[in-house]
Design a protein around this nucleic acid. Structure first.
Lengths: 265, 265
DNA sequence: CGGTATTTTCCGGACTGTGATACGATCCGC
DNA sequence: GCGGATCGTATCACAGTCCGGAAAATACCG
């Protein structure tokens, strides 16, 4: 374990987390290092472009280099390849079939799936699309996307089974329930007896970009195992979202003050 | 200059940029370091959480720690405080009054300004709002925002001067011109004889979050200095956008393959 | 202008990081 | 299935880098 590297990265981390320019002495105290040591480390980090010193005040602050590097990590991450191993694991854990969908113009599009060995015949294939309001994954996305998305989706509402929700207010109520519940369910609104349970997946911008769900026969999904399935799906969604660069807002530190005044007037 | 730190960060950078898991030997060759050296550095970075090793294949890849750290740098950056110094500089460079606005529900809201000592009386104050379609900053935002924004803005169109654009198709044509031109102009559509020139400001998500513009008497803005003003404004907008974490897409490396298939079906 | 705190430089010594070498494990072509 | 090449990991003596005390240089403040 090269301690110089450890010191340097700890120092950089401290600087980033403090969110404001720091003095040399202060940092040396905080990290328990001698001043010359911190001085050398800061100089090095400065040459490498991770830190800048205000020549007037001798205050050190991080540059945006970390942000640029970090962005490279998530910019081209591919939803499907990131999600697939986790979908397999979810399928293993639950024994149910699992699917991954994205939202497109009011429909859900199936982009990946992992089938269990349950007898139920697969009813969707990758690339196919289904009105978002009749699927659990579609509801999971609609519930946490901008309300305009529902306008797009509602345009394609169509009766598939006696349980299909047709009226806008029924759908809106269902989405409200979904938000309260924390996950979406489909009680057989697309195919009779075929139920589903789904949760949204977010990317680095915090927006909903996909949903994952488990589906199968009525009693397998919404019966006694329902809570267990919901938790397993949520855990998988968390992992995938994290891998896409989503940062849990719970990690919100107290930190400084000023936010962008989005609504000033 | 602590070379261990330099080696470690170069290594980390190489790993991030390569966008795929790498072998130890390969990295040692690329960086011109001995294998044991790279091995130790990777182990250290691994302990510190910046790198992970696939135990099965011994392939090393960066974790998302860099992304998390980087996000801290831009998450709470405040538009106004970041932009203000650059606005002052723009005012100095051009000698014209400068303003910073955000878009809100079809209006522009003035969030900061720097006045030149031109005789022209200031016509807007911080916090006030004006229909987006009659201002240069509003047009700059509308031209590069999602088309829905125009719906919001068009609802508040109102005649202020004989030059105010009233018809939707005229406004759309003007925005199209704006996009071609690369900056927005106001020929006196809000106050007679008062003209403006503006460009959009983007944040880390790539979306338009604000606009900056210069304004003043007709001939000062749209006369012979027009090109010069446009370039100065664009340069300022670039700086502010960068400080907000916007990454120029020109930095697009060739890199791997698969993108999220947004429209599969 | 003098006193204090902070940043920066210097330098000898200690210890950390270094790389040649070696050992297993794994992979690959035959 | 076998031998050779390649790779990752462990070891260790040495060199040199990094360390920290001390002091010089600079900024700060009344």
């Amino acid at each position: 374990m090269e301690q110089t590297v450890q010191k340097a990265l700890n120092l950089l981390e401290a600087l980033v987390r403090s969110g404001q320019p720091r003095r040399l002495t202060e940092l040396s105290r905080q990290l328990g290092l001698t001043k010359p040591n911190v001085y050398r480390l800061l100089s090095t980090l400065s040459v490498l472009g991770y830190v800048q010193k205000d020549p007037a005040t001798s205050l050190y602050s991080p540059t945006l280099k970390m942000w640029e590097m970090g962005s490279l990590l998530v910019r081209d991450t591919d939803l499907v390849s990131v999600a697939n191993p986790r979908l397999k694991k979810l399928c293993d854990e639950t024994g149910e079939s699992v699917q991954l969908t994205v939202f497109d113009a009011g429909f859900v599009v199936y982009v990946d799936k992992v089938d269990s060995d349950h007898p139920l015949k697969a009813i969707t294939s990758i690339g196919s699309r289904t009105p978002a309001t009749v699927t659990s994954t579609g509801k999971a996305m609609l519930a946490w996307m901008a309300p305009e998305a529902l306008d797009l989706a509602f345009a394609h509402v169509k009766r598939f089974t006696p349980l299909t929700l047709m009226r806008r207010r029924d759908i809106e109520a269902d989405l409200e329930d979904t938000r309260k519940r924390g996950y979406a369910i489909n009680r057989g609104e697309f195919r009779v007896g075929v139920c589903g349970l789904a949760v949204p997946v977010r990317d680095r911008t915090g927006g909903v970009v996909a949903a994952i769900g488990v589906w199968g026969a009525d009693k397998n999904i919404l019966g006694p195992r329902r809570d267990e399935l919901a938790q397993a799906a949520q855990s998988a969604a968390r992992d995938i979202s994290r891998a896409l660069g989503y940062l849990d807002p719970e990690a919100a530190r107290p930190k400084s003050a000023a936010k962008v005044p989005e609504l000033v007037g």
